[in-house]
Design a protein around this nucleic acid. Sequence first.
RNA 1: GCCCCCAUCGUCUAGCGGCCCAGGACAUCGCCCUUUCAAGGCGGAAGCACGGGUUCGAAUCCCGUUGGGGGCACCA
Length: 473
Amino acid sequence: MTVRCRFAPAPSGSLHVGNVRSALFSWLWARHNDGVFILRVEDTDASRVTEEAFRGVLDDLRWLGLEWDEGPEVGGSHGPYRQSERGEIYREKLAELLAGGHAYRCYCTEAELEERNEAARGRGEAPGYDGHCRDLTDDQRAAYEAEGRPPVVRFRMADTEQVVDDLVKGRVRWAPGELRDFVLARADGSPVFLLAVAVDDLLMEVTHVVRGDDLLASAPRNARVIEALGGTAPVYAHVPQVLGPDRRPLSKRHGSTSVRSFREMGYLPEALVNYLALLGWSPGDDREVLSVAEMIDAFDLARVSSNPAAFDTEKLTWLNNRYIQSLADDDLAARCVHFLVEAGVGVEPDVLRHAMPLVKERMKTLTEAVELLRFLFSDDIAPNEKAAGILAKAPPGYLKEAAEALDASPAWDTETIAATLDGLGAGAGLNRTKAWQPIRAAVTGSNVSPPLPESLALLGKERTVERIRAAAG
RNA sequence: GCCCCCAUCGUCUAGCGGCCCAGGACAUCGCCCUUUCAAGGCGGAAGCACGGGUUCGAAUCCCGUUGGGGGCACCA
């Protein structure tokens, strides 16, 4: 049987990394089994959903490389894939459940429900729907109808022990009566999540549901609805929440947690995917840096950890640098362009490409290309505080001398420049650090830069000499 | 309140009864390399929440305690 996994986000603009991890595990499982990955958008709450928020989610997934086989924009034989377009289907299935006696109309008002809940609490009993309208007689029903009470539709939950064999949590049980009859459709007839998910998973022939463990208790409800509709429930895998550094569930409160924000901070999708895969899963050996192919090959839902993991930006950053180092110069340069342009630095593609070997091991994020390489593309290199200090401490006449020596250089390659610089230092009785730092400060405006001879070679003789002369005053 | 989930270095994890006086990675500390900053190499410190069992033997199994988290909606 073909494995069919799905990811069903609400369109939020940009996915947060916790959701993405669920999506990733679902996707990896589909790919591992040569199965199908479905994207379904849970936009039933149409009032809050904008087209922009919808697009944001698709963009995030594509950027991460989590391509879907069925879903919005790619189609598929089980559509439509937006819940907002499936109203008719839900109405149909709701009628089916009602007709089969698996669901019933409940006339209790919210006030009545609340009142009885309070009373239950007062008696030390568990709150929750008490089954008031479960077995109304025709007369009672008629009386409520006559009152004009708008009914909701509730699912008749089996009064037996409920068991879910979860791929990551193991066997989980709920005592009889623990899971109450829940609402499938609101008084206005609109479907709620519990109906929509069950119907969609059934009709889309989903075999494995991978999602956050905050939904663990809805698994038996989903399963019973699917069965009431004549289907077979999928296998569930509830992955733990992703925690923030304070060990509380990740939320907006933690600042930048959306895919978009990591993208804007200069993280590579490869690094984010690799990092997220390692959050709660490991291949079982000591590998940490894994290609997508290796992840697909090694992935197993049964190996996903059942305890919650905290998101650690430092390790993500380390991985990011590893991936930056591994990229080809062309590729890296292309990815840096956006950030340089964004910062107002106009780039020369050829120079940029040749600068990559100089910066790839010192860039933790792509945004750092800006500070590292600005001096190559802009002549506005006013020295920062430390650079100014270095310049002030340079021996009198040293910079002028350096400018002349470099200007007189017969060739302009790394070796020649290094030799010239060394000759200069020797003449002034300075070691390399003392001899080179003033040059660095004069040319880059900073005390920190890529390797000096290579930088000067890229900058060109004219601009180098000009800047040193300017600094010499 | 009731129910459910979870518990190995600061963090992510390996470990599924003897291979473990617990292995790897990030972070951290020290040394090396070194033109700055990085990167890299080598080394160190750091953990089985607690208490009972079971067993010849427990990080691994069972029970309890404690501590986190989630659920108990006409939200998803």
